[in-house]
Design a protein around this nucleic acid. Sequence first.
DNA 1: ACCGTAACACTAACGGTTAGGTTTAAAAAA
DNA 2: TTTTTTAAACCTAACCGTTAGTGTTACGGT
Lengths: 192, 192
Amino acid sequence: MTEPSGRRERKKAATRRKIADTALRLFLEHGYDAVGIRDVAAEADVAVTTVFSHFASKEALVFEQDGSFEQRLTRAVTDRAPHEPLIPALHREIEALVRHCLTDEAAPVWRMVDASPALRAHEESTMLRHAESLATAIAADLDPPRTATACRTLARFVVDAYALARDADDPQATVDEVFHMIEAAWEATRPS
Amino acid sequence: MTEPSGRRERKKAATRRKIADTALRLFLEHGYDAVGIRDVAAEADVAVTTVFSHFASKEALVFEQDGSFEQRLTRAVTDRAPHEPLIPALHREIEALVRHCLTDEAAPVWRMVDASPALRAHEESTMLRHAESLATAIAADLDPPRTATACRTLARFVVDAYALARDADDPQATVDEVFHMIEAAWEATRPS
DNA sequence: ACCGTAACACTAACGGTTAGGTTTAAAAAA
DNA sequence: TTTTTTAAACCTAACCGTTAGTGTTACGGT
């Protein structure tokens, strides 16, 4: 059909990035609740409707490039070294993701998220969606297969590890401790 | 101070119940999204502001008597028979709670909740709040104490069991399977 | 009988979100 | 090139949940 070539797409992407950048800047400067969509639109020099044609909601402006999270989780399962056990691979990936949240670049955003109920709620439900796709990735990639329930449960436990570690005093240690429990839970699903 | 006696309180309770009943009826009849707060207020013959003086949000109209959930979870921990192990007590309670959701009375409401993103999001975040208070209840009531992280993790796993069972094909079996994993995870936290 | 106050009402607005219909400019067709 | 089509962005105006401001009523304590 339409070969993806050209100015139109570039302009669209530029508009999108301009909106997202402007929004994040304003949010961090003045606080998420203090900045309205109309403010974002004005500062980015676009119409309000344009904002919503690029982003489904105000919260989505904050989690702009969050497609990566789901990808990284599922790839940690599917792209791992042959015969590498599942849990350590997930352990490593969650640890990396948690560490990324503590970056100087990412930390202020997460502080903002934790401060806003709307943003927290949005994050929680996207986490659950991610857990679902992680569950299917796990189910698809299992040498001795497990129950669908076991896979779904593991997936939820894994995203729990992420969530728990993110607002723990010692995120690093928390990831390890939770994964120690996850490992045991997963062992218990071994078909005898 | 003011002894809680009399007509005023009765009238207030009556108004509250009338609003909640009307709202739930309209929601089930026409769908949650199709019914506005103004519709609820008109049908209950109260002002819109009165609705919000009794309920914090539109979603709260659906989860009217949901204070019981948190209580039942924490009481399953604190009020259990002396020396009864923790996990089976939680197992029984979650099983009972899940079974309650499948009641002819409660099932349509949950179908409605599952159909509405707003309601789902609301439920998810209240679940996480419940997990937090369950975690403190667990931490307070432990013969050989465990890490705060271990308690929080267990609490989240338990509410995961509830959530997973509620939209599983065989809720009963799912509760058992998830709790089998939880039991193993909890064993792994035993101080050696 | 009186007063304080809790419950409710009314109006008007704010902020996120969407629908309707128009303009602009890129892409494809002629 | 010129024409036609299409998709991005615009504007206006509204809808809906929610809240603030400001009464008004009637219950309860004195």
